Simulated assay, not measured.
Amino acid sequence: MSGRTDPFRYLLLAVAIGLLAACSRLDLAYRNLDLVIPWWISNYLTLDDSQQAWMTPRLEKHLAWHCSTQLPEYVAWLEQLDQLSQRPQLTVTDLQGQFAQVRESVNNIAVQVTPTVLGLAKGLSPKQMGELYVAMDERNAELREEHVAPSLKDQVTARSLRMRERVEEWMGPLRASQQARIDTWARRQGDYNRIWAENRESWQKELRNALYGRHASNFPARLTALLQEPDDFWTPDYRKAHPAAETSLAQLLADLFNSADERQRNALREYIGGMISDLKGLECYPR
């Protein structure tokens, strides 16, 4: 499932995680995060001049922190992936370990930006609150129209196509048997799109409730929990479905790697190597 992250969850820097998975010009995109992030925020609410002036130095601080502390962690993660790619076979456990590291990276970002999110949230006007809620509702409607409204058959087809595109970006063209394996994975996810959308909207409902009381003494604790412990707010259906979905994804990726020919494995190693080079070549990367 794809879609922009909610505006207050991983507000400033979650973009950087996505760059690792999806950007062919990672170096160019990362250098422009100071422009991308304000544009992204503006999709949800309009900051006034004083709020922008307050935000700018904090954004610069967050980006400097991210480049000096997190990018080396990303490089280490990619180097681990490169080492894994040298193995003849991968297991589900191997991939689940990589997923855990990504979750840790996202949590590090959430912890880092929480004070800034709290400060921004406390200063929102009623008009900005309304603007935020309208933008969230519109985005939810778009996601439901794209991912939930279509028939289950069409959802499966789209899910399979998205996965093929992502895998081929890393490994190059897939063989028919590998495409069939992705199709099987996509079918087995069943009604996951609806469960995901309902969980997203449930989290947003908790966010709205917290923002209504943003001047209360317990607001910092409530918003901090939403940002840093989002799984505490999962719906029962999502709590049940998510572990199985993650295991299924790990099994899919292991199967695709284990069935890869030498051309595909070389393409994978080249792609990983290119990402490592891009990150290490950034001007802000610690030397």
Rank of each mutant, 00 (worst) to 15 (best):
A141I: 06
H147K: 12
A149M: 04
V134T: 12
R188M: 11
P150G: 01
L152S: 05
D183A: 01
A135R: 15
V117F: 00
L132P: 07
R188H: 14
L118E: 09
A186I: 02
V117K: 06
V111N: 11
G119Y: 09
G119I: 08
T184H: 04
R144C: 09
W170L: 15
E138S: 13
L161D: 04
K127W: 14
M171H: 05
S125K: 11
R139W: 13
V167H: 03
I182Q: 01
G190D: 09
H147F: 14
V156Q: 01
W185S: 11
P115W: 02
V111W: 12
W185M: 09
I182A: 02
N140Y: 08
K153W: 02
Q128S: 08
G172E: 10
M163T: 12
G119L: 06
P150H: 02
V134Y: 08
T116M: 12
S125H: 12
V106E: 14
R162T: 14
T184V: 04
P115V: 05
E168R: 05
L132Q: 12
R188D: 15
V134S: 06
V134E: 06
R162V: 13
M136Y: 12
D154C: 03
G130T: 15
I109E: 12
V134Q: 07
R164T: 03
A135Y: 03
I109P: 13
L161W: 01
A121C: 03
P115T: 07
E142H: 11
R162N: 13
G190V: 02
V167Q: 03
A186V: 01
N107K: 14
R162F: 05
I182C: 00
A186F: 01
E142Q: 12
Y133W: 15
V106R: 14
Q155D: 01
Q178S: 02
T157M: 01
Y133C: 15
E169W: 05
E169H: 12
T184C: 02
Q155A: 07
Y133P: 10
Q112D: 12
P173Q: 04
E146K: 10
V148W: 03
Q155H: 03
L132S: 11
T116E: 10
G190H: 02
E142T: 14
E146F: 07
G119P: 04
K122T: 00
R159N: 08
K122H: 06
R166D: 11
E138K: 15
R144H: 08
S177D: 05
E145T: 05
A110M: 09
H147E: 13
V148L: 09
S177N: 06
L152V: 00
N107M: 10
N140K: 05
R166K: 13
R144Y: 06
S151V: 00
G123D: 02
Y192F: 14
E169P: 09
N107T: 15
R139L: 11
S125G: 09
R166M: 13
D137F: 04
A121P: 05
E142W: 11
T114K: 00
N140T: 09
T116G: 07
N107S: 15
V156H: 04
E104H: 14
Q128P: 11
A176L: 08
D154K: 10
V167W: 06
T114F: 03
R139M: 15
Y133T: 15
V148D: 13
R164E: 07
P150T: 00
W170K: 11
